[in-house]
Design a protein around this nucleic acid. Structure first.
Lengths: 236, 236
DNA sequence: AAACCCTAATTGTATATACAAGAACATTTT
DNA sequence: AAAATGTTCTTGTATATACAATTAGGGTTT
């Protein structure tokens, strides 16, 4: 591992563990250079990249400090639909429509970074809030990275919860769009006639590669996404 | 202006103008160092930052190339629709439907944290990408915090750009939903019949309080929101 | 034609150094 | 006490240099 990367890891752990809370001063470039026996420029690179990622804030003349927590994750903190429903003190229930092994289509294979035709796990689940469908979750899973996916009871534990247990995710990408639901989706969502739906396409990675790809569809009338951002770090 | 910044501007203009299209090779570190009479490390910084911003792709041994145009943008960055359109090398145009002072309704007053009946500034603007409407921006502005709002030409500068100039924003909240557009919105978006639209409700704060509240409506067929998250820090 | 090897170019990592600019704190002067 | 001054620490910019790792292309051999 590169030296600057070693230093980044060290600082990551201090911040992630909570040992250094918000606004706590971070070791200066010179201090890190001494501690890790590298040049100031190398220590600087570690701090600079952390600043670019929004984890720390740097101020000329003053120093480097742990960034206030809210800055990035709140919006798209990976949501667990079950927790969300329960946090509103509503009943949560799930119904599994599909749970099986399939051969990957070209499209699915590309998204999971596998070869077409290789087996993938496929699930379709409707999530209910007080017996009203609020999300249809269609998911494809990389079977090489998640062995026991098919043998879980997804009316007890959500796929998201299981996947988080099995392989800690390191990265996620999202795309949000507004769509008209297909007849099949209307049925699963118990919509008597099509209404605009919010669709979230989410891909998540672990260190080993793409773990899963999910298409989450919410009826527009029953769902909205919220988020809050703080600025102040401002490295334009 | 710092030297690395000068070089970035130079490269940015090459890319934005289309003189260097997708995948076109970008001057190497050494070439830029000679051309601008700086050290390789300074030229390198310019290229590296452009790579961090996603404008170019660097490949060890091969070189630096203009990145493929990305069709989605990060949620996290407060997006300026004009920049976004132009970053795709498309034409940007705006049309102002409404720009006036009004008395705040109870709803607007609450969102701006003002008293009902107090004056507020109200604007409605359609933003075009290649003559196709991609966003209707309906906006209410706190007149106590932004004096000259009504006297700007919003076909030249976007409200967002003006507001950023006048009062640096410190905070923002977003809500995203899928809606069916009203007849009025269909007209402004030039939709012959209603289609699902992505709606973003955004409120922004400066240190002094709520600056503005915007309702941004995008046709589902012409827009999607994208974002990417890293969890190396584990603050999720 | 194909396989192989060598070379040049390019990006990636790392170091040592220099000076500028801002912030914080202690010291001196008023 | 308040104001001015200076010192020191910190980050920001810039340079020159060295070597590693990878790629692309050219030339040679098979």
């Amino acid at each position: 591992m590169a030296k600057f990367s070693t230093i980044k890891q060290h600082l990551y752990s201090k911040i992630a563990s909570g040992e250094w809370p918000e606004h706590h001063p971070v070791s200066s470039e010179n201090a890190l250079a001494q501690q890790f026996k590298v040049s100031r420029m190398t220590a600087r690179r570690a701090l600079q990249e952390l600043a670019d990622e929004g984890l720390v804030i740097r101020s000329k003349g003053s120093g480097t400090y742990v960034a206030p927590i809210k800055s990035q994750t709140s919006f798209m903190a990976i949501r667990n639909i079950a927790d969300e429903v329960r946090s509103r003190n509503h009943d949560y229930r799930a119904h599994v429509h599909v749970l099986r092994k399939e051969a990957a289509t070209a499209h699915v294979a590309e998204l999971l970074q596998l070869d077409a035709g290789k087996p993938v796990y496929h699930s379709v689940i409707t999530h209910f809030e007080n017996d009203l469908p609020v999300q249809v979750e269609e998911r494809y899973v990389n079977p090489e990275l998640v062995k026991g996916y098919l043998s879980q009871n997804y009316e007890e534990i959500t796929p998201h919860e299981y996947l988080c247990e099995v392989s800690p995710l390191t990265e996620a990408s999202h795309e949000i769009e507004a769509i008209t639901p297909s007849p099949q989706l209307c049925q699963w969502l118990k919509l008597s006639k099509p209404e605009p739906c919010l669709r979230i396409n989410r891909r998540t990675w672990s260190a080993a590669g793409v773990v899963t790809f999910a298409v989450l569809t919410h009826p527009g009338s029953r769902f909205s996404l919220g988020g809050h951002l703080h600025f102040g770090s401002a490295r334009a």
